[in-house]
Design a protein around this nucleic acid. Structure first.
Lengths: 198, 198
DNA sequence: CCTTGTGAAAGCATTCACAGCC
DNA sequence: GGCTGTGAATGCTTTCACAAGG
């Protein structure tokens, strides 16, 4: 039986082994003292806890470059996500194949969500369309929304929204870059803060 | 002079006002007791601290759907990022305009990085090409890399890498979705952890 | 007054260190 | 013997609460 120790996993992940053991302990007691963790069993338990063993149908709304990139993104299928439909308001796009799926018109949204029991929607539309799409998704029964549009969405209680801003990570890099440059010369003006986030 | 209080800002951001004041205090003492913060001055100070007042030339490597989506993404320009060049290994793409910029061949990488003093590179290539592109970027002088490819990059000390996994946010939504569904019925099997991350 | 800026207190997260168990 | 699981200790973050100051 292939096993792995908390020490090995911690080294691979770059964290402290006690933290790793404590985190695992919240999921249950899946290790064996003196031996380690049964790899296969551990993978299964973590997958189940994270919801990776379930099938999650999602709809992607807005099939521009970003929507197409998301539809083609391999990481979704391997984590239990199934693209139930690609939707766009542009009738010229209707029927075109993207990542092997036909683009369908936004007016089919309600039917598709109901027929496929979709609970997760991905918004890759321009900012101006995002709120209206959100309202329709929510009315149709979607309770989780991943928003790539650069706008804040309002939703009723009970609906989760996560916003992805593609430039935030770039901004974090630029922040560190600025710090690197500043290490060998004085700041151009003003004070250097004593503490800043990593 | 338009001002804003820590209480107003905290309410808008959904955080505690004391935390907000303490965070601001690390940047300096920019408020006025009994009045609040001068909006314009505060915006300037925060912008400067975050590096938003600087110009950051970036190159985007891999002009598929994702690369094109990034090139078109409006959020970059407004935060001080300037796309110095779009690069791709596909010669068929060379010269094509994406977001108003011509796609250039990957072999121009070294020249472009040097000529534009690029310190930040964005990788939107397939996983297989990412490490090689990284090595070339680093050799050319890039010290910060934003990686959208689903692979772990190795870089020398002094180079920052941030990895963006477009499916992680979706996974977080699915995790909460699973929890919602589980609230009204017993777990299918196994224990419910006492604590899980938000 | 009113609101900032900040010590002190409270609340969390991480790490230590070792008893418990295979 | 070796590694997990976990109380206790440590360290960090957030909040409280109020003196300081316009």
């Amino acid at each position: 039986m292939p096993t792995v120790s908390s020490e090995e996993l911690a080294a691979a992940a770059g964290v402290n082994s006690a933290k790793l053991r404590k985190d695992f302990s919240y999921l249950g007691s899946y290790g064996t003292r003196g031996v380690g963790y049964d790899v296969e069993y551990l993978v299964y338990q973590i997958s189940r806890e994270l919801g990776l063993t379930q099938d999650w149908p999602v709809v992607i709304v807005g099939i521009g470059n970003l929507g197409a990139a998301l539809a083609n993104y391999g990481g979704f299928a391997s984590r239990g996500f199934r693209v139930a439909a690609l939707l766009d308001a542009d009738t010229a796009l209707a029927g075109r194949l993207v990542a092997g799926l036909p683009v369908r018109h936004i007016d089919e949204l309600e039917t598709i969500v109901a027929d496929n029991q979709v609970s997760i929607g991905v918004i890759a539309t321009p900012a101006g369309a995002a709120q209206e799409v959100t309202d329709r998704l929510v009315a149709a029964g979607v309770t989780s929304i991943l928003n790539f549009a650069p706008t804040v969405l309002s939703v009723p209680d009970g609906v989760d929204v996560r916003k992805v801003d593609l430039s935030i990570e770039l901004q974090i890099l630029a922040f560190h870059e600025q710090r690197k440059a500043g290490d060998d010369r004085p700041e151009p003006d003003g004070d250097v803060p004593a503490v800043m986030p990593a």
